[in-house]
Design a protein around this nucleic acid. Structure first.
Lengths: 217, 217
DNA sequence: TGTTGTGAAGAGGTTCACAGCG
DNA sequence: CGCTGTGAACCTCTTCACAACA
């Protein structure tokens, strides 16, 4: 069990994102048998500053040893605890398309405690086929299945024009977290946490940067 | 041709991201034949505030008509121009795995002016196979091919432990933009624009939120 | 009249700099 | 002596509020 963390205030999302980055670095350091790590090293590997690292960690408590740095296995456990990774999350994938496939088969998923328990689609040609080791189910079953299997997270990977209705279904099924890959905006009621990955926006940020750099053609 | 925009100052990344969201909304409005749109409507559909919309757009010039709103087709053209989407971008995908597959086949890609011109991998079993309509090439050819085909953007979709060396190769090939899907940190020299999508972090932000909400189990 | 464009105020996040402590 | 933890300064982005104006 990791050391107790201070009661969670309001934590900024950028902070949580960085904790995730630190976690990966700590995993690598731990595998190499390194016992401690300084905020400076963590910052360099994580692409930030040592002050930022210390600020981020200090939000949750005092984990470091002055003059030494942070104990790797201990901080690892603490971060896993903070990020909610020490318990397993049950994930369903809604939309057995390309992105859904990629995610369901992504090994890093399971390693971090996210296990895919079901896959859904609305296409009769896909329903019933085996897919990443799971039978693709009819999305119409979602509410019924969820009452029994109680998934925690739904990955929403359907076309944009079906995103909202599918999100509504996920919500009705009582699933508390949605990772949305649809490009359109999705509304969810309070109590449901929505995290959106907007690939188009990522590409367009890149496009903007390239089009507006010095000497752009 | 869209109206001239004011000379680009330093624009915040969140602003560019929102422009991408506005663009999608404008496309939908345009398809429905709506001639104008107010900052209020754009804000509601885009998940922000009307003041934010006006601030975002005003950075580039005055496109609105007081008392009326914004002319949809005109603003559409202007945003495409600003985001660099009115010219085509040549994209190569490096890493013919799951994520690479998903991206190469994603239709929204091409619609926005990003055309996939080549796919690379280092696995001999994949090299030479046809994949999303393109022959998978040996990544060792990348520099040579790029000198001839001049791609603008590389999608980096290889495992984490090969990300840096692959990024180095992409850089040597003279490609100016990288969209990175590898979970580890990648360093690029100045002049190369790097945009990273960290799926693990997205999931862990969700995990954090679920683990720390009221009444979390 | 309705809606934009924008200076000013406010909030939120990052960096600085150093006291505190192992 | 080295490195953490943190208040304060700084900076960046968002929200407010209203003058400008089609």
């Amino acid at each position: 069990m990791a050391p107790a963390t201070t009661p969670a205030k309001r934590i900024a999302q950028p902070t949580v994102r960085r904790l995730s980055v630190y976690l990966r670095i700590l995993e690598e350091h731990d595998e190499r048998g390194l016992a401690t790590i300084s905020s400076e090293v963590l910052a360099t590997l994580g692409g930030t500053t040592s002050a930022q690292v210390r600020k981020d960690l200090s939000v949750f408590g005092s984990f470091g040893k002055r003059g030494l740095g942070y104990a790797v296995p201990e901080l690892l456990g603490t971060l896993r605890e903070i990020l909610g990774l020490s318990r397993g999350w049950r994930v369903v994938i809604v939309g057995a398309g390309k992105i859904g496939t990629a995610l369901a088969q992504y090994a890093g998923f399971r390693e971090r405690g996210f296990s895919v328990v079901a896959v859904y689609d609305n296409d009769p040609r896909k329903i019933g086929t085996i897919w990443a080791g799971l039978v693709v189910r009819d999305v119409a079953q979602l509410e019924r299945d969820a009452a029994r299997e109680r998934p925690d997270i739904a990955v929403l990977a359907v076309p944009g024009d079906r995103a909202q209705e599918t999100a509504d279904r996920i919500t009705r099924a009582g699933i508390a977290g949605i990772l949305n890959f649809a490009p359109s905006r999705v509304q969810v009621p309070p109590g449901v946490t929505l995290q959106t990955v907007n690939m188009a926006a990522e590409l367009e940020v890149l496009s903007y940067a390239l089009a507006n750099r010095e000497g752009a053609h």
